[in-house]
Computed example of a mutant assay.
Amino acid sequence: MFQSNEQPQEGDQNKDGQKGSGILDKIQQLGQTNVPQMEQTNIHCLTIIGQVEGHMQLPPQNKTTKYEHIIPQLVAAEQNQKIEGLLLILNTVGGDVEAGLAIAEMISTMSKPTVTLVLGGGHSIGVPIAVASNYSYIAETATMTIHPVRLTGLVIGVPQTFEYLDKMQERVINFVTKHSSVSEEKFKELMFSKGNLTRDIGTNVVGTDAVQYGLINEVGGIGQAISKLNELIAEHKKNQPDPQGELMQ
């Protein structure tokens, strides 16, 4: 599910006498193949799948993305000189609002080029994560559900509770409208729309509609996403100063 930024240590050998078996074993244990190996690519691929898990641990049968796993990877990708760009792939039902916003904020403040690709779904708090990158794609069949912030569990029915909920919702609205082309008016219209979702308010937006509303930059897949990221990396390198303080040509 997640990639490791660790490098093979001197002396680590597999049973065939080859070095680097340690990191490959760890990658395989995390459900990934050994292609591509981290040392062979300048792009770090990060996945947000299932439900974004926050401060409360979800049941073991739930497919989750733990924010305490994602944040160190973002830090490592930012400081690792071999990593020149971040590809973020989403297929999430949403989850913890504050954890999702924390991930989105970190992605949006990275100095390296970032591209997001929504596959399957980028619902609820997945929307801010999807728009946090420099450029975003959505598969033609993928969907994004936009709805008001909800609280689960026992809540105190006092005005302060509703004020807190309203402020949290404003944080989501402000982030999405700041990092995409959708207007605040349109986003609120989609959020509070009636009749689109069964037993709920909100809107389910399909691939081309997400682009039309300005939420996502373009409809596309993995090929387009990697091509765009490589383009952004090349542009980023061009604008970087050389050791003499002049821009690279």
Score class of each variant (00 low, 15 high):
Met191Phe: 02
Thr64Arg: 00
Gln212Leu: 13
Val97Glu: 09
Val182Gln: 01
Asp16Val: 08
Ser227Gly: 13
Ser21Met: 11
Val176Leu: 05
Leu151Asp: 03
Asn5Ser: 08
Gln51Ser: 12
Ile107Val: 15
Gln244His: 12
Thr208Val: 13
Gly22Thr: 12
Ser181Val: 13
Thr161Met: 13
Glu246Thr: 10
Asp96Met: 02
Gly221Asn: 07
Ser183Ala: 09
Leu90Asp: 11
Glu170Leu: 09
Thr141Trp: 13
Leu46Asp: 04
Thr65Ala: 03
Lys66Met: 13
Ser193Val: 02
Ala77Glu: 01
Ile226Gly: 11
Gly17Pro: 05
Gln244Trp: 07
Gly223Thr: 12
Asn204Ile: 10
Pro113Gln: 06
Thr208Phe: 00
Leu24Ala: 15
Leu30Pro: 14
Gly122Phe: 03
Gly153Trp: 11
Val52Ile: 15
Pro128Gly: 06
Ser4Phe: 14
Gln9Met: 14
Asn239Thr: 07
Asp96Ser: 07
Leu151Ala: 06
His55Phe: 09
Ser124Val: 04
Val97Met: 13
Leu232Ile: 01
Gly126Tyr: 02
Ile125Lys: 01
His179Glu: 02
Gly94Lys: 04
Cys45Gln: 12
Leu117Thr: 10
Leu190His: 07
Glu235Ala: 03
His44Ser: 11
Ala234Gly: 04
Tyr137Leu: 09
Glu235Trp: 00
Lys178His: 13
Glu68Tyr: 14
Val211Met: 11
Ala139Arg: 01
Ser180Leu: 05
Glu68Phe: 10
Lys188Ala: 04
Lys82Cys: 04
Thr114Leu: 11
Leu190Ala: 07
Ser133Gly: 12
Ser193Phe: 04
Pro148Tyr: 05
Glu189Leu: 09
Asp200Tyr: 12
Ala225Leu: 15
Leu90Gln: 15
Ser4Met: 09
Asn217Ser: 12
Phe175Pro: 00
Arg199Tyr: 15
Ile146Gln: 06
Asn80Met: 12
Lys167Met: 06
Gly207Ser: 06
Gly11Leu: 10
Gly126Gln: 03
Val158Tyr: 05
Val149Ile: 15
Pro8Asp: 06
Ile138Asp: 14
His236Lys: 06
Val176Arg: 02
Gln57Leu: 08
Asp166Pro: 01
Ala234Asn: 05
Ser227Pro: 01
Ser193Thr: 15
Met38Asn: 13
Lys186His: 14
Glu189Ser: 15
Gly54Tyr: 08
Gln7Lys: 15
Tyr137His: 05
Gly17Arg: 03
Gln3Gly: 06
Glu53Lys: 04
Val115Gly: 05
Leu232Thr: 00
Gln249Gly: 04
Ala142Thr: 09
Leu58Asp: 05
Lys26Gln: 08
Ser227Glu: 13
Asp209Pro: 12
Gly121Val: 04
Val127Arg: 00
Asn204Met: 12
Ile89Gln: 05
Ile49Cys: 14
Pro8Ser: 10
Gly95His: 01
Val75Gly: 02
Ala76Tyr: 09
Val52Lys: 03
Asp200Gly: 07
Tyr135Ala: 11
Leu74Tyr: 09
Gly157Glu: 08
Ile146Thr: 00
Asn62Leu: 04
Gly126His: 02
Gln224Ile: 01
Thr145Asn: 14
Leu87Glu: 05
Gly221Ile: 12
Thr109Asn: 13
Gly22Pro: 04
Asn204Pro: 05
Ala225Tyr: 03
Asp96Trp: 08
Leu86Trp: 07
Met38Trp: 03
Val118Leu: 10
Asp12Arg: 02
Ala139Trp: 03
Gly153Glu: 07
Ile226Tyr: 11
Lys178Leu: 14
Ile156Trp: 08
Tyr137Pro: 03
